[in-house]
């Protein structure tokens, strides 16, 4: 059931996004209401950045709550679905943007230039789901060790992990080799 508040938000967002200065190619029915009652904009990766600019500047959504992704399963043409959620403290309002991507290694434009705090959310999303954010200034892993080859929250990742000890053992061998060399030099100096 849609409340008056939600209908008002939907009308406000639709008026700006599909108006005369709105996003190119965004239809009115792209702004709907999700099953949980939140106003949701369905966009394509090309439209995403433009939508976010309007949400921030024209509609007053001043903060990004999270960026996350959902894996629809291996072998699907449209495999990863991106979710962006925004909060407006001034209007006491939230809005969600969802973006379908194609392929196993999807790429979407970053929104770090609009909300700098999104950087960590996008790094986490790249780390765990393997979604690349083009234009991100510093797209490193956030939680898993640097140099890990896999993305743990994908559907085809086994829950027990793929060689979880590989990086540790690599580090351990290098450390022992360096110690053996320095120990040999020390003994050499003693003689």
């Amino acid at each position: 059931m849609t409340s008056e508040k939600q209908a008002a938000t939907q009308a406000r967002v639709a008026a700006v996004l599909t108006g005369s200065n709105g996003v190119q190619g965004l239809a009115v029915d792209a702004i709907g209401i999700d099953h949980d009652g939140m106003v949701c904009v369905t966009a394509t990766p090309e439209q995403l950045h433009e939508v976010c600019v309007l949400l921030r500047d024209a509609l007053g959504f001043e903060s990004n709550t999270f960026v996350t992704a959902r894996d629809h399963g291996v072998g699907r043409e449209q495999r990863f679905e991106m979710f962006y959620q925004f909060l407006s403290v001034a209007h006491v309002d939230r809005v969600r943007v969802r973006v379908m991507t194609t392929g196993d290694d999807p790429e979407v434009p970053t929104i770090t230039d609009l909300w700098p705090g999104t950087s960590f959310s996008e790094r986490e999303c790249w780390d765990l789901m393997g979604v690349r954010f083009s234009g991100h200034p510093d797209l490193r892993r956030l939680l898993m060790p640097q140099g890990y080859d896999h993305h743990p929250l994908r559907k085809d990742f086994p829950h027990v992990g793929i060689e979880p000890d590989k990086l540790y053992n690599q580090w351990d061998e290098e450390r022992r080799a360096a110690f053996a060399i320095s120990e040999a030099e020390r003994l050499e100096g003693k003689r």
């Binding site: 898993m144 743990p152 086994p158 829950h159 027990v160 992990g161 793929i162 979880p164 000890d165 540790y168």
Partner: peptide
């Protein structure tokens, strides 16, 4: 935690 992130016992290392 039989998981990808957790060491299965400190006696591994």
């Amino acid at each position: 935690y039989d998981s990808y992130a957790v060491v299965q016992g400190v006696d591994s290392i």
